[in-house]
Amino acid sequence: MSEEGWLSRLRAGLDRSSGRFTRSIGAIFAGRRLDDGALEELEEILIAGDLGVATAAALTGELAGKRFDGEVTGEEVRAHLAERIAGILAPLARPLEPDPDRKPHVVLVMGVNGVGKTTTIGKLAGHFAERDRKAVLAAGDTFRAAAIEQLQVWGRRTGCAVVAGKRGDDAAGLAYGALETARDGRADLLFIDTAGRLHNKDGLMAELRKIVRVLGKLDGTAPHDRILVLDATTGQNAHAQVEAFRDMCGVTGLVVTKLDGSARGGVIVGLADRFGLPIHAVGVGEGPDDLRPFDAGAFARSLMGLS
């Protein structure tokens, strides 16, 4: 799949939303000066894109301070906003870079229920397997019915070994065993799947911390990457998710899934502003190779309906 193909698909995915953006912003500024009413409407449009009240206010505030001479076109305003958004996101677009000296480099994958953790691991494993990096997958979601089977299917698809127990097993114990297996087999990478958990459930969050603690007994630096998977359809609650997982396990990076769905994923902008966590990859489709590096410029321009 070429890079071009991905971009056009991202654009197609965002088209629903950006189409509305384009029309509504165009309508505000057609033949009008940038007055308070126009700025307020602009702010609301950004809010409707899930950018959040604070981020939307900040971006519109800047626009108010910026002098546009006389009449401003919708296109100019969009370009300006896209540039600003890309500026916020660009430093955070960093693909996952496992340390080749670590055998294995341990990646813990976490998130609330249904965001696509298992699928993300399957896709990441496929990505590294194609590059001849040996990856082991640990089926640490011992709660959800058939989660283990789901990861095993991904193991077969990508040719990666899967360490699995049975439902109800202690996830920390399984992760420990998987790290031993991966280490003995001189694997390059170990991906640890975890059960989806709501970030406000203290007991479940403590279990996650236990996984981290237990891994630390075998390798004091593990898990090296602690990825939080976010669903692009999530609204402002994404902030609470990042905060809770960060406080509990020290999130090191994000993967945003379902970005080619109907949602705009605008919450990423607010998250970037507030947490500054790297965005390792975005899920832009249902195929095994549809997890892609995050391109800030393309995302921002697509979001604002610019080609």
């Binding site: 809010i47 894109g49 899930d50 669903d231 609204g235 609650n237 949602a263 605008g266 919450v267």
Partner: peptide, 15 residues
Amino acid sequence: ADAMTGQDAVNVASA
């Protein structure tokens, strides 16, 4: 529908 859904909820529901 997920209670955490953002502004897209209206599009999803109406579609």
